[in-house]
Nucleic acid binder design. Structure first.
Length: 926
DNA sequence: ATCCTCCCCTAC
DNA sequence: TAAGGTAGGGGAGGAT
């Protein structure tokens, strides 16, 4: 193969000697399958114009683009993250004499409507079109409406499910904490004789799940509807609901028999069953029922993992061991079912097995209204009848992969595949999970102690903006929402991701689903979230500012937006109490008092201890947007005025720096053509010299907990959190106050290191990371501003303005070779950023073309032609950077590219503003 | 190797 | 009219 490659490369270079142009310079192309024009012709074309033809796809990194006319399903997956382009890209580029943007020729597989939900046809929703035509309706019922976010979340079933799940998880966690403490206490008292609990005994796992939860709940007050095809959805079924796109959240068994499925639209359901009846959501009732359900489960469970409002996994090994009968597990399950039925009036089903995987499988066979104990001997027989999607965690995507790469989706077939084969097809871990699952093996533990990693809010329904301003208001409101959620959890974050859904170019303006998002392109962008003083934050203004900046950086038309989400990561607990009147609905769990509990059942756990939030340090009030204290030397106004990319770079630097408790100055930022910044993993300075006046800072998040009895709300009791001040000071030789100022993870390191010193007398050189509290080198201040571009290298830097008329009006005449001029301009500024005055001049000229009183269609057309040409030029030089912005780029040419694209977008925006004013639309560059 | 980031995927 | 959220697991691919 290597020889073959080498030979072909020689052939390539022979053709190369007669190169006609260099438009494909830097491009390496692999041609996949049969194409029109043929591979031979394409190869000649590529080489003729300075590109590289890669005959084999041995190494993906050698190939920049893949050319194809058809792709098999398998290839689509294989090439998913590649630039796959139609051959016309090459032929058209040659015709144009310039490299056209590959995205305009991106290979896309034909419509895959079958993958979309049934309501998502291509047709626009005519009801929505009508409604949206009325500005008043629009202003009152879409994302532009005041209070939209609140009402939306009040009515969203998915939001409800997520919220309740989070609450249940927290309760389970609190319970686990309490239980652990109780056990520890008992363990101490009875250490001498207490037997090791449960060890050596096979686990008993139960998967408990309401049958058609929402429907069952609704039927409690509508007994006359029992036995009928009923669904829960928003639509009141006006006009028979025959044209309703309202989604069915839950269908009764009678409805399911008629083919109605959860997630269908009501209109679909009506077609299948015209007599289907609808019930409204009753969120508060669901909450009450779930509370009763979980309370009962908690009584019986050693361990409980909340799955959702109507579903939980419990380990009941102990409780089962206390039942003496022929089938104790099944008997306990029936008892639990009876208790839930008595308390809630609803049926649950319970799957029982020795692991989670099988318990979940058992539940399916237990339904409706039953309990089923799946024994090891039953497993092979059951598994053999199943499909891959019957396994928890495997859905259509894995099914498709299995079908393509493994030739089957039946577990009986997949059972013949080796571990390696499965892993190669599905990924390492997923393959192993599947391999084990087929054999009934699953050793996942029930976990109730997981800590939160992110907090987010997202809406992709009813998002319709007609202006930048409404979009901005919305984004900032969303930020407010996220901020509240963070505060309720007493969390702050250091990282923000904005998710944007934008109407796909091929999708109708009004989606098939009423006010839905329709087919969309999704954009995620993550940046550092920098609160006051460079610290983690939950401040709504700060979050809003970051989110809005990110959104703006995309320069999307607000009218095209269909979904907005804000996610906060890199969470830290808030130290002191945050002034939030927690209006969060907490599930009012109380110490369980189960109904008709037989004496064989273990005693209910004691309630969780009062949770105390110790404020380690609280020297200042909560952070606010207005006070940017720590970065003393930077005027906030200056900061604001910086270009986004510079700002973000600084912010990231601050963030890195602020690992130190005293966010003083950011580390130096390499700029321009200097050597690339070494992202040193060197230890962060723990105690910068000089201004230890950092003490004036506000509360440092992550302070250790001084009260040894306190328990952090979202963290299980953790021994490292427990040292007393005197222990820290006297035994470990650390300053407890200083320690409290450190972020939690550094505290942990410091404590560990100090303990090691104490016991070993020295710290082992583990990774060379920061080890122990001691003063460190002081980092010099950052290089805040861009170096001026090296003008001297370009003594005859051409100015666009020189070509303009000197009179009061700036205008090109027909005689001017505008295209040639722009080309010369762009070419001249290929290696340094363009001059702002030139851009200004150019923008004015174009705006005038569109806007001036004597502007005619030809003026507009001229502007379009010029902007298009500009676009072609920019894409020719910097096509790869077109959709990249705001990134922290080191390379000079990347900076230049970004500068040009920014200029382009700014100018385009200015023209669009005028065009919108004048014609109510934007310039189309297609 | 191991970590990090940026996705996709999955569950309810 | 309708209310398509949310968090975590994991894979790919690049940086360290």
């Amino acid at each position: 193969m290597q020889r073959k490659r080498a030979k072909l490369q020689i052939q390539n270079s022979e053709i190369n000697s007669t190169t006609a142009s260099h438009i494909f310079k830097g491009i390496a192309i692999y041609v996949n399958g049969r194409t029109e024009p043929s591979v031979q012709e394409l190869r000649a074309l590529i080489i003729l114009h300075g590109g590289v033809f890669e005959p084999y796809l041995v190494n993906f990194s050698l190939v920049t683009h893949i050319i194809t006319c058809v792709l098999t399903e398998a290839k689509i997956r294989e090439f998913k993250n590649r630039k796959v382009v139609r051959p016309e890209w090459l032929t058209e580029s040659v015709k144009a004499g310039a490299l056209l943007p590959w995205r305009d020729f991106e290979f896309v597989q034909g419509p895959r409507a079958h993958q979309l939900p049934s309501y998502a046809t291509d047709a626009s929703n005519s009801n929505a079109q009508r409604a949206m035509a009325d500005p008043e309706w629009r202003a009152a019922n879409t994302s532009a409406a005041p209070g939209f976010i609140k009402t939306y979340f009040e009515n969203s079933r998915l939001h409800f499910l997520s919220t309740v799940k989070a609450e249940l998880v927290r309760e389970a966690q609190a319970r686990a904490e309490a239980k652990q403490e109780q056990q520890q206490a008992e363990g101490l008292e009875r250490a001498d004789y207490s037997p090791v609990k449960g060890k050596g005994r096979e686990r008993v796992i139960m998967h408990c799940d309401f049958d058609c939860f929402f429907v069952a709940a609704g039927l409690l007050s509508r007994p006359d509807l029992r036995g009928k095809p009923v669904v829960v959805c928003h639509s009141q079924g006006n006009q028979g609901g025959s044209s309703s796109t309202s989604e069915i959240a839950c269908a009764s068994y009678e409805a399911r028999e008629r083919g109605i499925k959860n997630g269908m639209s009501l209109q679909q359901a009506r077609k299948l069953c015209p007599s289907v009846l609808t019930m409204p959501y009753e969120f508060e009732r669901y909450r009450d029922l779930a509370l009763k359900f979980y309370t009962i489960l908690m009584v019986h469970a050693d361990e409980l993992q909340a799955v959702s409002i109507d579903e939980a996994l419990i380990e009941v090994t102990t409780a089962v061991s206390r039942v003496s009968s022929a089938d104790p597990a099944k008997d306990l399950a029936e008892r639990i079912r009876a208790e839930v039925k008595a308390e809630t009036g609803c049926e649950i089903s319970i799957g029982i097995a020795h692991n989670v995987l099988l318990a979940r499988l058992a539940t399916r066979r237990a339904k409706p209204a039953g309990a089923l104990h799946l024994r090891p001997s039953d497993v092979p027989g059951l598994i053999a009848t199943l499909e891959i999607t019957d396994l928890w965690g495997f859905a259509h995507s894995h099914r498709d992969k299995a079908r393509e790469k493994l030739g089957s989706t039946a577990l009986s077939e997949l059972a013949k595949k080796s571990r390696t084969v499965l892993s190669d097809a599905l990924g390492k871990k997923t393959g192993e999970t599947l391999y084990n699952a087929i054999r009934g093996i699953d050793d996942t533990e029930l976990r109730s102690d997981k800590q939160r990693k992110s907090v987010s809010a997202e809406i992709s329904y009813g998002i319709r903006f007609n202006s930048r301003e409404t979009a901005e208001v919305f984004v900032r409101d969303m930020a407010e929402t996220v901020s509240q959620r963070l505060n309720e959890l007493k969390m702050r974050g250091r990282s923000i991701t904005l998710k944007i859904m934008k109407r796909a170019p091929s999708a109708p303006v009004e989606a098939p689903k009423f006010l839905g998002h329709g087919a969309c392109d999704v954009f995620n962008k993550q940046t550092a979230l920098v609160g006051a003083g460079g610290r983690a934050t939950s401040d709504a203004k700060v979050i809003g500012e970051h989110a809005w900046r990110i959104l703006e950086s995309f320069h999307f038309d607000p009218q095209e937006l269909r979904g907005i989400g804000i996610q906060i990561q890199k969470l830290e607990p808030t130290d002191g109490p945050v002034n939030t009147d927690s209006n969060q609905k907490r599930l009012p769990f109380k110490p369980a008092e189960p109904i008709a509990r037989p004496p064989s059942v273990i005693a209910p756990p004691s309630p969780a201890p009062a949770r105390v939030y110790a404020a380690a340090v609280n020297l200042a009030g909560p952070s606010t947007d207005a006070s940017l204290p720590a970065i003393d030397d930077v005027d906030p106004a200056v900061l604001d005025a910086l270009p986004l990319d510079v700002r973000q770079e600084l912010e990231q630097a601050w963030q890195r720096r602020s690992e130190s408790p005293f966010p003083g100055k950011a580390p130096p930022v390499q700029r321009g053509s200097g050597p690339p910044r070494s992202r040193s993993t060197a230890p962060q300075s723990v105690f910068p010299g000089g201004k230890a006046a950092g003490l004036k800072l506000g509360p440092r998040s992550g302070g250790y907990i001084l009260d040894k009895n306190s328990v952090h709300p979202n963290r299980p009791a953790n021994s490292f959190l427990r040292p007393t001040d005197s222990y820290i000071r006297d035994e470990l030789g650390l300053d407890p106050v200083m320690l409290a100022l450190l972020p939690r993870h550094i505290q942990r390191e410091q404590l560990t290191a100090a303990r090691l010193i104490k016991t070993l007398g020295a710290i082992p050189e583990v990774s060379g990371e920061r080890l122990i509290l001691k003063p460190r080198r002081y980092d010099p201040p950052p290089d805040l501003f861009r170096q001026p571009p090296p003008y001297a290298k370009y003594p005859e830097k051409p100015k666009l303005r020189q070509q303009g008329r000197t009179g009061e009006k700036v205008f090109f005449t027909e005689a001017d070779d505008v295209q040639g001029l722009i080309e010369a301009w762009v070419h001249a500024f290929k290696e340094i950023p363009p001059n702002g005055k030139d851009i200004e001049f150019f923008a004015k000229f174009l705006v005038q073309c569109v806007d001036s009183e004597r502007s005619t269609d030809t003026g507009v057309e001229r502007a379009i032609a010029i902007v298009k040409w500009w676009l072609v030029l920019l894409r020719r030089y910097w096509g790869d950077y077109e959709h990249i912005e705001g990134t922290v780029e080191e390379a000079e040419d990347a900076r230049v590219a970004e500068a040009w694209w920014k200029a382009f977008r700014d100018v385009k925006e200015r023209i669009d503003v005028v065009a919108r004013k004048k014609f109510g639309g934007r310039l189309s560059l297609r």
